[in-house]
Nucleic acid binder design. Structure first.
Lengths: 126, 126, 126, 126
DNA sequence: GTGGTCTAGACCACT
DNA sequence: GTGGTCTAGACCACA
C-alpha cells in the first residue's frame, strides 16, 4: 500500500503531487496492474484536501491511460503497461536535466556537484 | 554579450527564465561586475515578451542585490560580488536534488540514469 | 439462448449494455415472445456484475413493457409485441444520427467515412 | 470565429460538449494552428457556465496536446497538427460504429436504415 | 457505497 | 488582464 504525503510548502500543486506519487508508485512496483486505488473520498480525507483535488489528479491519469475508472466501482491502475515509449522518456530525461542544470548553474552549482550529490541517492529504489 | 532565449514550452515562467539566465551568465563569467544589461525595453522587444515581464525579472534581481539600477542610465551587474553563503548553497543543492529525483522517479527514471545524463554535461563550467 | 457480453472500456454503463442486448435479441428474433430470461442472480454471476445492476436493467425493460416478471417464477419476454411507434422510431433514428455525426466530426471522421464503415456491417439484420 | 453552444438536455456533460466543439472546429478548419481561443472567463460568461467547467475542457485538450496555454497570456490551438495517428482514428471509427449499431439495433433500426439516414448528411462539412 | 459533474467564490501566479 | 489552483458543498449516475 502506498503512503501518500503532501507538502504544502513545496509550491508544487497538490493534484500534481498526487499524480507524481502514483506514477512513482507504479514505476517502483508498489502499485501493480489492476490494483485498486484509494477512493477519491478516502484519499481526500486522508490528505486533508478537497474531493475535487483528488478527482482532478485521478482524471488526468485516466486521460493519460495510466488509470482506469469504473463509475460506481472504483479507480484502478491501468491494465496497459505504461511504456511511455522510449522516445518520450528520453525527451523527458533530457528536458529534466537541462532545466536542472540551468537552475543549478544560476546558483553557481556545477553539474559535477550535482552528480556528486545525486550519487548519494543512487540505489534508493529497487 | 549574453544570448537570451526563452522556451515557452518548458513550463518555467518567462520572468524566471530571464533571472536564471542572468545568474547563469554571472556564474560563468559571461557577465561581469559593473557591466550594463540591455534596457528593459530592448530586452522585451528582443524576447517578444511584455515589458512587465522583463521588469519583474530585473526587479527581483535587484532585491537580491545582483543588479543595480540607476534612474535614467540603465541596469548594471551589481558591484558587490555575489557570494551566496556556503550554507545557503548547500541547502539549495539538496532541495533541488530531492525534487529532481522525485519527478524523475515518477517517470521511471532512476538516479543512476540522471547521473549518466548529467555526466554528458560536465566540464561546461568550472 | 442469448450470449451476453459486457465491455467495461466502452464507457457505456453495464446496465445499459444489458438493456441494449436484450432489445437487440428481441429485434433479431433470438429472443421470442414469452421466452424466459436468465434469473437476475444467474445473469449477475455470469457477467460478474452486481445483482443490482442486472435488476436495474430488467426493471427498466419492465417499465417499457418489454419484459414481464412473475413473482417467484422468473422474468419473461413480454407477451405483447413491441411495436415502437413509427414516429418514435424515426425520432430516435434522427437523434442518434445527429449525435453520432457530431462526435465523429470532432475526431475528423466525415459522414462519408461512417457510411463506408457501416456498409461493412449491412445485412447482419433483416 | 467559432460559435459555441451547449445543450443542457443532451445528457452530455458541458465540458465534454466544449471539447467536442473545439475538436470539431479544428477538424473543419474553423480553428487554425496558433489561433487564440476565447479566454476561460469570457467563454464561461458566454455559455453561462462556471469558470471551472471551461477550465476543465481546456485542460483536457491541453493534456492531449491539442491546445497550448501560456499563463497570463491565453489559450491557443496547438502548434503541432493533430494527427491522432491513423491507427487511433481507425479504432475510434470502429468503436463509434459498433456502439452506434448496437444502440440502433436495440430499437429495431438496421444498419441499412442508418446508412440511408446518414447519406442525407453527407457533404455537410467542407 | 463508488465516481462524475457543476456551482460559487476565493486567492495566487504570470504577462 | 490572463490562466492555475483550491475549497465547500451540492446533486446525479452507477454498482
Amino acid at each position: 500500500m502506498l503512503e501518500f504525503q503532501l507538502d504544502a510548502r513545496s509550491g508544487v500543486p497538490f493534484y500534481r503531487q498526487i499524480i507524481d506519487q502514483i506514477r512513482f508508485g507504479i514505476a517502483t512496483g508498489q502499485l501493480k496492474m489492476g490494483e485498486q486505488l484509494p477512493t477519491v473520498r478516502s484519499l481526500a480525507v486522508q490528505l486533508k484536501v478537497n474531493l475535487n483535488t483528488v478527482t482532478k489528479a485521478y482524471k488526468e491519469l485516466e486521460i493519460q491511460k495510466i488509470l482506469e475508472t469504473q463509475q460506481g466501482t472504483g479507480t484502478f491502475i491501468g491494465s496497459e503497461k505504461i511504456d511511455v515509449s522510449v522516445r518520450e522518456r528520453r525527451n523527458k530525461l533530457r528536458s529534466i536535466c537541462e532545466e536542472f542544470i540551468n537552475v543549478a548553474a544560476a546558483y553557481g552549482i556545477s553539474p559535477k556537484q550535482l552528480v556528486d550529490e545525486l550519487k548519494k541517492h543512487e540505489g534508493g529504489l529497487s
